[in-house]
Design a protein around this nucleic acid. Sequence first.
DNA 1: TTACTTGCAAAGCCTTTGCAGTAAA
DNA 2: TTTACTGCAAAGGCTTTGCAAGTAA
Lengths: 154, 154
Amino acid sequence: MPTTPQNMEEHLALFEQACRAAGLRVTHQRLQVYRQLALLDTHPTAEILHQELRKKIPTISLDTVYRTLATFAAHGLINKVETIESQARFEVALMRHHHLICSSCKTIMDFQWQSVDDALLPSEVSAWGRIDTRSVVVYGICHTCLQQTPLPGK
Amino acid sequence: MPTTPQNMEEHLALFEQACRAAGLRVTHQRLQVYRQLALLDTHPTAEILHQELRKKIPTISLDTVYRTLATFAAHGLINKVETIESQARFEVALMRHHHLICSSCKTIMDFQWQSVDDALLPSEVSAWGRIDTRSVVVYGICHTCLQQTPLPGK
DNA sequence: TTACTTGCAAAGCCTTTGCAGTAAA
DNA sequence: TTTACTGCAAAGGCTTTGCAAGTAA
């Protein structure tokens, strides 16, 4: 769920506000990391973000990107996306949504599914404790990959 | 979704059959790795499995556990569970189910949710490509953790 | 000025790989 | 006997951390 360049200014203003509210200093690097992540809807890895960011801030280091992402995630400003891969992926935390993952090209797409968001959870789940979030992950093969390989992997 | 010791024999027999069907050799280590995983409903990491396995096979190496789990997962005999943590967790692939994760103690519980299994996916998802699986991950704080900390983390 | 951030470099942790010996088929 | 699998050790990849310099407040 990215931000269009038009909304970016107000989006960043809100982000700055959230940072201050969380007691986080608003640095150039932090603003740019957030901005870059908000621009992308590709759920990038820290390394991909770093590559992009170096075009604007040639001296930014990969560990700053990691540290910044961890800080943002700890404050709920962004989400670390659950996957079965070794490299972590990130997204800005905005609208509630779910994920569609292509098992072949590993692309992650967002989608909304209101009926599941609203559905009552099984009673055993409610009885388990306090529920905070629910997220659906759908796996499959996207059209692009289906066309490229006649017999795509499971 | 573990196996009770009573069902274990037939479960292992089915597993052996599946291995042979997949062209995998049935070794002592593989049988024990699968057996141990089937006994646990805790979605263990490779390292935890390794610790358990050494009680029965003192010489089994951690890399064999990793390799074995990767092989099983590649053949769909077990599942690698998606989490946002760095260490991978595993489970035997049996009944369709979903996961409940405690953000505090990181325990993973299984639950079933038939209505979501049966629900029609949004049309944009069906249009995206071929869908193979869907899985719900619910995050919250379990009762045990709720009782231990008066103000548990988000 | 003070405390938080950054960049650098190094370390850490989890996982994978090459190789020679071993065992399943 | 043939070829896959295992154990060992080492390497690899992703991420985190200590420290001194830099910078937001």
